[in-house]
Design a protein around this nucleic acid. Sequence first.
DNA 1: CGAGGAGCGA
DNA 2: ACGTCGCTCCTCGA
Length: 463
Amino acid sequence: MPNPHKYTDYSIISGLSWKRGKKDFVSWADVELEITLEDTPQNRVWTIGQVMNKKKIESSYIFVLESDLIGVLARMEIIWVGFDPKKLEDIGMRIRSDIQSVETEIYELVWPINISSPKQLQTLFFETLGIKPTKKNKTGYSVDVDVLEEIARTHDVARLILEYRGLSKLSGTYVDGLMKSVWPDKRIHTTYDSLWAATGRMSSNDPNLQNIPTGDGYAREIKECFIPLLGNILLVADYSQVEIRVLAFLSQDPSLLSAFQNWEDIHMRTARFLFWEDKKITSHERRIAKSVNFGVIYGITGFWLAKTLDCSVSEAQQYVDAFYTRYPRVRVYYDTLLENARRDGYVETYFGRRRYIPGVNDANRTMRSIAEREAMNMPIQGTAADMIKIAMIELDKRIMADWLEGKMILQVHDELVFDIPAHERDIFENMVREVMEGVLRNSGEFLPITVDISTGSNWAEAK
DNA sequence: CGAGGAGCGA
DNA sequence: ACGTCGCTCCTCGA
């Protein structure tokens, strides 16, 4: 059972802030600030105003937004999400049994060794077996999934270790970890932070419900353990490709905008630009285009794309150049953004949320490149975060104003989860779609935003 | 107890 | 030699 003291002193203070006991400093906008805290609950109270002052967020719009969001998050945190611990226990037993089998197989090949120790794996592969290392990290040679995939082509033990890793992750983080967070009433209660992430995204902890596995097999079964209250259903609504739509909106690139206005498949659109306009696009080519689309949002480099696509750097660079040639306003947008960042020392979202990025003027080229990618990504990720926060505030208002029984219970960056009675299904579907899709629709140019909605008797089924 | 490596999500 | 933002688990050494 979770620590019962965690919530006994949980209280909303002046409608502005509530206790955040665990962390004793905030890190935001690359400004690390010690907040002097005496060890008393009263002194641990931060107000939104104090935090935002320290972080130099100067937009009053964002101040009001974050203030309004506090009550919404408090209600979400208080409601919790239903959970089926017996099912998880059963899954856990099967995973542990699989781990045993894989472990036995591994130990037939290499013995003795702690499979969970990267250091020992390093010794095994690069000294005992004499494989030549391909990737470095701070302390030596990496044995992460990329490296092991490569080794697995010639050594079966690497394949087995990858299997072991996957199962261990599920067992440790998602079975044992989640089990510790289940309360006697069979519910799980996360904590959200709205002003922690540098971009304005929310984060979730204790437990983190924003990184529950999405795959098939055991991963899917784990997600099936998240269930609505008795008699209810879960409704999941998620923004489709929201970040690249935000890029279209911020850059006002005509080609990017028209792709969305014509409801085209954006990856296909880019693929036709990168390859041959009229020819049939293969799935391989579409995959390349998808990597480029995503990469651009993160400040793509030819080097990284080459590694991802397993092609030469010059070929990868051609794709990047082709993207900017065919979406020219995106290039202009980023150039202007970086100029402003160098002059002002910060970048902003569409709604005025600010991130200070002093590194854009750093003398060190590597540091500067990192800062430039941060500067390029923040307005996109941050505007998407602003959008869903605005939608959450509006939805919370409407749920209360209309006296609906259903509740908003989870947020996963571009996804909202509701626990609702079945008879409110249509009401919620219409309301949620209208509010989420309407958030950006106030500024002249119309950008189509798609929200996918589905329902089910558990989180896996509703996704 | 903290740093580092690793892996899960968007 | 670097795609962005997070959180948690594990090992290992102070």
